[in-house]
Amino acid sequence: MLENTPLIELAGVNVSLGHGARASHILKDVSLSVARGTTVGLVGESGSGKSTIAKTVVGIHRPSSGRITFDGVDLTSPGVSKKVRRRIQLVPQDPYSSLDPRRTIAQTLAEAIDPVAARVGPHRRRILEALEMVSLDASTADRYPHEFSGGQRQRIAIARALAVGPELVIADEITSALDVSTQAEILALLNRLRRDLSLTMVFISHNLAVVRALCDEVVVLLHGEVVEHGQVIDVFRRPQSDYTRRLLESVPGGPAFRLVG
């Protein structure tokens, strides 16, 4: 596998939601690329369009213009096969709404492996492997979501994404609903996974410190536009845009934070 060739590339992507006069332009000419094996953080405040990028890449939203190329395939063309789409997996934000309360963990994972039949039996081994990858033991499989804490549910959601065998994982604010100690565990888990599985990851967060702890590169978004894109170390040490600087200065406990003045 070639390092540093982009696995996914967005070129001049525009997304508008709503119809007619009430349409709002959410993504404005977004261009960015994610190299194989790297983790890129998308940061921005509410309304910056970071989640819209994730939803557009997985096909929930359709761009009005621009190209999204995944491993040489244009994702915006109408005839993209499900097989290609399955190579990109999204882990949603809210661990309390991402698992069907009426289905066991094994059934949930079985559906990810075989969406049509969704039978546990033939895939039991693969299900247990996926659970093991996120450090959950085999007894997890036959239990229901309500028996698990937020952090454990988020692990299960990650396991579901991994069970598909994806090349690109998009994690949309997956630690923001968690306590800090649980968040730290999930971050450690993601760090281990991307190393062991050589995953390519897009990590969406409003929390700059979290992005710094996990990502190689960071993309800063403001009102649907990319205002800065670079290596995490460079951007955090020498932010080029005023907005990035303001973001960094706003983090309480950060060195540039000023409470008075």
């Binding site: 410190a209 955090f236 000023r258």
Partner: peptide, 27 residues
């Protein structure tokens, strides 16, 4: 201690002399 360790931090920040001055205002 565990809570502190679990909290991701923004270290390595640009610290300019004027920032150092104003940050002294934190009582």
């Amino acid at each position: 201690r565990a809570l502190l360790d679990a909290t991701p931090r923004l270290t390595e920040m640009p610290v300019t002399p004027e920032m150092l001055e104003t940050s002294k205002e934190i009582p």
